[in-house]
Simulated scan of single mutants.
Amino acid sequence: MQASVMEWFESLPVWGKAAAVGGAVLAASVPVYLVTKRPRPTPYKSDWKQGVVYMYQFPRFQTIPSASPYALKLETWLRMADITYENVDVPMSTRSREGLLPFVELNGVEYPDSGLAIRDLTKLLGKEAMEADLNDEQRSASRAFEKMMEHSTFWTYAQIRYVEKIDEFAELFPPTMGPLQPLFIWLFKSGIRSGVAQKIKSAGIGTHPRDEVINIGLEDLRAISNYLGAKHYFNGYKPTRVDATLFGFLAQIVYMPIASPHNDLIQQECTNLKEYCDRIKGRFWPDWNECTQTRSLHTEWKKKI
């Protein structure tokens, strides 16, 4: 069926393809617009249980539980903090009140943004002990490296994944769109490539030549590797928030089957970063294979430890 759709599309003249794409975009955008603009129930989970965190994120991915570093960061932190949480199955159009994914709800209240959600849940659920042993220098370094990863390192990797190798990335999409999957992927690639390229420029990094952009990311990775050294986790033998953040982003490089200068550096020079990712994956993601093979959001990960 998918092949038939694409064969029909390729048989059209140029004007026909343009009309078909325009019609598909219009057909897809109208319901999405109506859904996203329509006030949704708050909280989304009406039958919530006291003390349970409900997480909203994109569907599971191949080779990695989430292709969103922010979602992987947040879910890893929930596991590190030993918080009772449930993933909620929602349409892909569902977003937080700020218009983004992931977000969480607790006791009927929404907490958007992965970083702010971790901050708020730490206080609400009494998880301050996770970082009670950190001194001021460690706290400052942790915040600095978190922000570097999110606002510098990741955008240099985005140059590879979303711009230069978007075709390889799109091939890993789970088949959730039925016969329209090829058209959906074509539209996604067209939009994401230009959109991310613009965001990289907006971040300031994209104003440099391509090789300099990549070099910035490699220097960031070397800095993380040097600070980590032989430590078990970023600040010693106890995982903290910065570990969830670094893992959420580094895992995109290490476990995604897309070649990049970033992964080459980790495999050949900064090998402690690969060991670091494997260590966190092994401890907090014993259900990794099940998540990626079945793409289930509802695995009993605690029973596997």
Rank of each mutant, 00 (worst) to 15 (best):
Q138I: 09
C291A: 14
V196H: 00
E219I: 02
D133N: 07
I160Y: 07
K238R: 07
L12M: 15
V53C: 12
S68Q: 05
L250R: 04
C270N: 10
E212C: 11
H298L: 07
P179N: 10
N235R: 07
V25G: 05
T156R: 08
N226S: 10
K147W: 00
F103E: 06
T299S: 14
E219R: 15
N272Q: 10
G229C: 07
C291R: 15
Y157T: 01
A129W: 09
R222H: 11
E219W: 06
D211F: 09
G229Q: 09
R210E: 12
K17Q: 13
S46Q: 15
L72Q: 04
S296W: 06
L106A: 10
V242P: 01
I258F: 00
P41W: 04
A144S: 09
K37L: 12
Q198V: 14
F284P: 02
Y255C: 05
V25N: 11
L228M: 12
G217K: 02
P286Y: 13
Q50F: 04
V30K: 07
Y85P: 09
L180P: 05
G178N: 13
S142M: 04
S194N: 08
L187F: 03
N107C: 05
P41N: 01
G51K: 12
I185P: 00
D211V: 02
A24Y: 11
F169R: 02
K281W: 01
K238T: 02
T84F: 00
G108A: 09
P69C: 05
A129K: 10
A129N: 06
E164G: 13
S296Y: 06
L26W: 15
P209Q: 09
M177E: 11
R119Y: 00
V32C: 09
E131M: 12
A67G: 15
Q57L: 03
G229S: 08
T42I: 08
F247D: 02
S202N: 14
L273Q: 01
A81Q: 00
P174H: 10
K238D: 00
T299C: 07
L273S: 10
M148I: 07
Q252T: 00
E105K: 02
D133F: 14
L125D: 04
P91L: 10
P102Q: 04
S190Y: 08
F247G: 01
M92V: 08
E290P: 11
W301M: 04
R40Q: 08
K17I: 05
E131C: 05
A223C: 04
G204P: 00
T176A: 06
I160G: 06
T156P: 11
S152R: 14
R79W: 02
A24W: 06
V35L: 11
A144C: 00
N87M: 12
E290M: 13
E150K: 09
E98I: 15
K201A: 03
F58A: 08
E150C: 08
V30H: 06
V163Q: 02
Y233W: 08
F169T: 04
I253E: 03
W8M: 12
L187M: 13
G23H: 05
A117T: 03
Y237Q: 13
P102L: 04
R60K: 07
P112F: 07
Q62A: 13
A67N: 11
W285T: 09
A19W: 13
D264V: 12
V213M: 10
I266V: 10
Y85F: 15
T76P: 01
L101Q: 01
E219Q: 15
C277G: 11
I200G: 15
Y162I: 11
D82E: 09
